[in-house]
């Protein structure tokens, strides 16, 4: 690879990216990612829409921009294929649900990022910046269309992934990974929007009628996805609930105080008028 002459191989960050490129070199059924020929710090990836969701059958392509300080700082993901869940051409980054991007951990990797992206797709958009709240029908339509989507650099993206039955089984999710992915949230860089916890609108119940019984890993991802949608929305609701309860308690107190003051003033006014 020509990359080897171009970068300082002694730099641990470069070594790390080389390692990741090597690890991810062969595509799996779920995702594929590799660095551009001329830039180790920009990767292109393709992920398969999680089965039994409205993204089922879709292939989504995007870019990963790695900061020069990677892995100390998080990668940015930019989706290019219209998908109805994330805006295209907008940087999104990973964090632990409910936390700032600063909670990125150097022990996460590009693989973690892509698995988290797949798992995060079926979660409610909840108004987060960079998120889209398309209807399931629109998403299904986009999923169908995505199969013919082409990247100017990589070509037809549907060809990038391994197919069921082909030997992509070397990348099984470990238990730790499954639980790790559940904690990760993705959002666009600026985060000024309200994050209302809405009830799940999407129909992502993991239905049992998977045509292929042997795609165990895909099933597992579905379950993860369903889990993560629950686990990401629940704490949110909790936090919002407690916050609003606190607020309403405080509000009640203030209303009471204001009413007391008003009635005292009225009493004084009445006394003034009648005693004179």
């Amino acid at each position: 690879m020509s990359l080897e002459n171009k970068y300082n191989l002694k730099s641990p960050g470069v070594k790390r990216l080389m390692r990741e490129a090597f690890e991810l070199a062969s595509p799996t059924e779920e995702f594929h990612a590799c660095p551009l020929d001329d830039n180790l710090f920009e990767w292109h990836f393709t992920v398969r829409g999680p089965p039994s969701t409205e993204f089922d059958g879709g292939c989504y392509h995007g870019r990963i921009l790695l900061p020069s300080q990677y892995p100390m700082q998080p990668p940015n993901i930019i989706l290019l294929t219209p998908n109805g869940r994330f805006e295209v051409n907008k940087k999104i980054c990973l964090s632990i649900s409910g936390h700032h991007p600063e909670s990125w951990q150097p022990s996460w990797s590009i693989r973690t990022a892509l698995l988290a992206l797949i798992a995060f797709m079926p979660t409610p958009a909840a108004g987060t910046i960079g998120s889209l709240d398309y209807t399931p029908e629109e998403r299904q339509h986009l999923a169908k269309k995505s199969k013919t989507w082409e990247c100017q650099i990589c070509g037809r993206i549907a060809d990038k992934l391994a197919w069921a039955g082909s030997d992509g089984s070397g990348h099984k999710l470990t238990e730790e990974e499954t639980s790790l992915i559940k904690q990760i949230a993705l959002k666009a860089e600026e985060d000024a929007n309200k994050s209302e916890a809405r009830p799940t609108t999407s129909n992502e119940q993991p239905s049992e009628d998977l045509e292929d019984g042997n795609i165990e890993i895909r099933q597992r991802i579905t379950i993860t996805a369903a889990h993560s949608s629950v686990s990401t929305s629940l704490p949110n609701t909790d936090a919002l609930l407690t916050a609003s309860i606190n607020r309403s308690n405080k509000d009640q107190l203030w209303t009471a105080v204001i009413w007391i003051i008003i009635s005292i003033i009225i009493l004084l006014v009445i006394r003034r008028i009648f005693l004179l």
Binding site: K15, E23, P71, P106, S107, S109, E176
Partner: peptide, 14 residues
């Protein structure tokens, strides 16, 4: 303890 092997290895090696 459950740390991801791939990345722990990376830091450990350095």
């Amino acid at each position: 303890l459950g740390f991801p092997q791939f990345t722990v290895e990376d830091f450990y090696d350095t």
